[in-house]
Amino acid sequence: MPFAETSTGAFERPDALETLIERADAPVARFSLLDDMIVERGDKSDWELLHDLHYKAENLPIGPRFWKLTLFGETIGVLVTANPKGLLKERHLVFPHMKPGRETKTTNTYRYVFVNQNFRVISRFVVDTMYRGIGAGYRMMNLVARMEGLTYMEIQSSMSKFNLFGQKAGFRFVRPLNANKYEIGMKFFRKNFQASPQDYQALVDELNAHPPAQRDALLQLCKDHYYRHSALEKTGNNRDKGQDRVNAMSVETIIKGIQQITLASPMYGVFVNPDKGRSVPQRLPLTAFDAQKPTEKLHV
């Protein structure tokens, strides 16, 4: 896929990206109510309506913007975009010239300005369970990536290894990388547990099987480790809560948290907006996706 030069001189690298999935023209079964679904601006109340269906229900990202999918005026899907991370190793595989090097404070600051002016990230996305599996998700992702109006839309999603919704929406993905804290986390597990780091229940059972004093000491060690290495606890709504929030967590939550920062390997995908600089309506029928290929200019 050809890529344009950015203002930083960075070029996208097709060799760093995985397969692009495009729609086939062969006739397929189609959910008739797709014709009545609308993608448009939403607000926090739309997220609150459906957020319990999302595994990250508690917190919102930094700089959220809300988009909703409606059917006959009822919200049946919500997509939340957010400010992107300033530094991201997966992004640097695709945009190698954005990777930090020998820089001044000014150029380092400019990188963050450039990222915020050209990138958004899909942070939360949930569709009502009644309307899953009909193709609404990838259609909405594609349209929102256009309607946001920036050059690039990013996503980091573990589910993209199992469900090709991102690829169908026109996103290109790099190969999964180990989590940033993989080596540190694996060393912690091997030092303090006999159970496999991947076996959640075995880790919980092993910790709980210790005598009370030893159990409490190991649990506190786990909490200290998790807080020290978890970016989640130092950003968003959690950033002002300190370690008190972590100290109140259960054994199960702490083990799950350490596994997440150690073993998670979400796939990084990027969508290049073909409609950048064009006037795109802020309210579109969901089926507007079907009028062109996922990476072509919108036919409106």
Rank of each mutant, 00 (worst) to 15 (best):
L286G: 14
K68D: 01
R91H: 05
K241M: 07
D15P: 05
R175T: 00
Y131P: 12
K168P: 00
K181M: 03
A291T: 14
D128W: 14
Q243P: 05
P197Q: 07
P84Y: 05
H299G: 09
A29T: 10
Y268Q: 02
A288S: 15
K256E: 08
M98G: 03
Q243V: 10
A264I: 10
A145H: 07
N142M: 09
I254E: 05
E40G: 14
R139L: 01
K297C: 07
Y110H: 06
V204R: 02
A29P: 03
N163S: 05
R102G: 11
P27W: 08
S32T: 13
L50V: 12
G269F: 04
S250R: 10
L218I: 06
M267F: 11
N118T: 14
C222E: 01
W67R: 15
T253P: 00
K241V: 08
F119T: 01
D46T: 03
E90T: 13
R239N: 07
Y55T: 12
P2R: 14
Y182F: 14
H299A: 14
G185Y: 03
S157P: 02
Q198E: 13
R132A: 12
T295C: 12
F119K: 06
T6P: 03
I261M: 04
K56G: 12
R41V: 04
I254T: 15
K293D: 08
V204W: 00
K223L: 04
K168I: 01
K56M: 13
Q282G: 11
E74A: 13
A264M: 10
N116K: 09
A24L: 09
R175C: 01
P197K: 09
K99N: 05
T19H: 14
I76M: 02
E296S: 15
N116S: 04
E148N: 13
H299M: 07
E103V: 09
N59K: 15
Y112W: 07
F125R: 03
E48F: 07
A169Q: 01
G135L: 06
R132P: 03
R111L: 00
M1F: 12
M249R: 11
V246S: 01
D199R: 07
P96Y: 04
E148Q: 15
A195T: 02
L34M: 15
E252V: 01
N59C: 15
K181R: 03
T151S: 11
S158N: 10
E206T: 09
D290F: 13
L69V: 15
K293P: 01
K44A: 15
R146T: 11
S123R: 00
K293S: 15
H210Q: 08
E18G: 15
A179S: 08
F189M: 04
V270R: 04
T75Y: 05
K68E: 05
P96S: 05
L164K: 06
D244M: 08
L221P: 01
P197T: 14
P285M: 15
R13I: 03
G135N: 07
Y200L: 05
